[in-house]
Amino acid sequence: MNEARAMATLALFAVGILGGVVLHAFLEKGPAENPFPALPKVDEPPAAHDFVAAVGAEDAQALSKMADISILTDLDAALQPIVDVRSTRFVGAVESEGRLLSAYVVTGKTAQGIDFVVGFVLRVANDQVVGVN
């Protein structure tokens, strides 16, 4: 009798879970559709790849030869609050009328030693990094 009761309770609970999943599917419509067109992805530009490789290797010497002071200042702002870069990852690039944006995710530690993640985008034109967003 007790076993039957336990089984019935479990079965009822399982039916409840199933009901909850169905209810969620009905109520959760997900994010609104993007009403704007999306651009196709393109390959990572070599100039951006080299630039970010220097960032990932913390190679200030190489970086100083690749970019002027305004780009380095923008890069510094984009990396805040990370002061110790641990990894860089290319996430995608898009192109519009010859203008290329190459996006990266950087993980690292803040000055307080907290793990953090930031994203930045390199603007590339004529096979050169011309800006950091």
Binding site: A38, L39, A93, A103
Partner: peptide, 19 residues
């Protein structure tokens, strides 16, 4: 246009990049 390029996460922080 609005394009989701990609993203990543560390712990409770995630970053999402758009063009």
């Amino acid at each position: 246009s609005l394009t989701y390029i990609g993203g990543g996460s560390v712990g409770s922080y995630s970053v999402h990049i758009y063009a």
